[in-house]
Design a protein around this nucleic acid. Structure first.
Lengths: 186, 186, 186, 186
DNA sequence: GATGAATGAGATTTCATTCAT
DNA sequence: TATGAATGAAATCTCATTCAT
């Protein structure tokens, strides 16, 4: 499955033939279909594993006492992950594939919901603990962060000059301001 | 070709067969290949036409006297465009295809550069006219806006509950703050 | 399609690969699938063409003035057809395939009904014209003849020593007796 | 193997995969191939077991004192067996497979010969005992009965409205007449 | 210019069979 | 004996592209 990941990241789901994958994996086609009933199952397995990583990452962030620290760390993790070619490529492949395969879409939407609700949860926890202004609309801010996250992944892929890390200071200040509430809220 | 656009938006570049396209277009395969030497040319033509729309849009924005008005309008146009299913789908298809086909990537990168430099130009013009703080890093802000734009397109596609328009007030305030300079700059 | 017939008769539907058929037909696989969307369609086309032959044959028999002459001729035609290797082989293949593929079964059942009702019609016409005893149960006799017809096809295939023609005199006498009515009816 | 029988009857020899059979049998493929060297051996074993049943049935019929009683009983047994879905399906599968696999054909032909010669033997015994006219051509009548038997199996499979039992009275009268000799012989 | 029949390489998937454990 | 992971040949079907008409 690690081989499939590599192939898919490099060439995309539909441009990676079963022959490519089995060659990289060093197994026969029969063996491949012994473990995965069809190519879609392979794709779904990879989407699911991405989801597990998201969940794992969120559970670690949730243990950080200060909500702002947690979110700042998240921004940094995203910037790092976006710079990882394979992770980035897979994210875009999954987005594209979601448009066609309803099963992929469902799984990807689950992953997405986990992340978004995780962010929302972090913010709410921050409000509860008094670390974030109680005028903040947690759902809206979570959506805003999700846009940025998706955007960073996209940018890295499209614009070779884009360095996620360069965006961090600006985003941190904006996030700080948003969480502080004040004039910024809708 | 409007038929190809429809097919590509609906099913993706690789899932739309020539047969699909020629059926929707109501022409024979021979005729199709008379106008486009191969399938890739069809894809490139569509990517190019997207680019023309971007350029057209920017030229109109450049004529607006107040840089902030222009950028606010841009935010709104993006929010509207992202909500258009076909435009959104095509954007994602192009992003995915760019990862494999260098010709597509080159063309898409050109489109991207046009937009990014257009934004940067708007901001610089704003600085020159004194509408934007001269402490603002135009390139950085343009990149930040590009992230958000890409992110909004992505969000619409992934999260059915996401409404681009809901994000506008927040983004407008943030943009305003960023352009005003002050503490926000890196 | 004549090539497919040959292959199917020789090796059966599932033992004839597309490659076999296209080789015999002297065309490429692409061409084959240009005319038939899939292998099943090829099978169905052949089953349908068998049905047309049955209908044609029956329409000719229906024009014979004497019902007994018509039925006697039918017995002879069956005996001749059963001796034709390809026709015989196809009949058995169709019977076997009908057990699995509902579409084939439906078409084969149609063919079968046409023949059975044709026989019944011949007998009823004979009764109407006074050529056959009006104590005869036309449906039952038609069923009996159908059994014999199927049986002859089967026998030829299983028992190399079986000569359909040798059975004709016996069957003609039995048929004559049945149609004459008398003690024989149920 | 009872599981294989079930699968073969339901789906046919070539449509039943080894995986199907071993699942129904509740054993592993390794175990299956421990007992049967290959799939063909499984088919042959089933064909052979059919033959044993035929032989058993005949030996019981041979013990009946009156030849006509024995043959009448046989007609009834056939009508009952033909109505048994699995037995019927297998008979057709064997007929179809015989056309391709010489080993199957040889075994099936043996079974067939046993039955035909058994019938012939019953009739000859009847002649010897004076229960059947000595003008009767035993071989020919046996062939005629075999045709009917095969035909009944085929009819049941093709024509859902066909009830073997309905045919019995007619066949019994015809058989009676044939065995009595007289005008009916060739 | 327009057509659509023909091509054939290549894709996914199945399945009988083997063999190390 | 029993297992089931591994094999790889072969099957069906797709599709971008060509070219004679």
């Amino acid at each position: 499955m690690v081989a499939a990941r590599k192939c898919f990241a490099r060439n995309g789901f539909h441009q990676s033939s079963i022959a490519d994958i089995r060659t990289v994996a060093g197994i026969s086609s029969g063996t491949l279909f012994h473990y995965f009933p069809n190519k879609q199952a392979l794709v779904l397995a990879i989407v699911a594993s991405e989801g597990e990583q998201v969940a794992l990452c969120l559970s670690q962030l949730a243990e950080i006492a200060d909500c702002r620290d947690a979110l700042n760390l998240l921004l940094q993790l995203i910037a790092e992950l976006a710079a990882d070619g394979d992770a980035n490529a897979l994210a875009i492949e999954i987005a594209a594939e979601s448009r066609r395969d309803p099963d992929v879409r469902a799984l990807a939407a689950d992953n997405d919901t986990v992340l978004r609700e995780g962010l929302e949860g972090l913010i709410r926890a921050g409000i509860a603990r008094g670390q974030v202004s109680n005028t903040v609309d947690a759902a809206l801010v979570a959506q805003w962060l999700m846009s940025w996250i998706d955007g960073v992944f996209s940018r890295v892929s499209v614009d070779l000059a884009f360095k996620p890390m360069d965006q961090l200071p600006l985003m941190r200040q904006l996030l700080d301001m948003v969480l502080t509430g004040g004039r910024v809220m809708s």
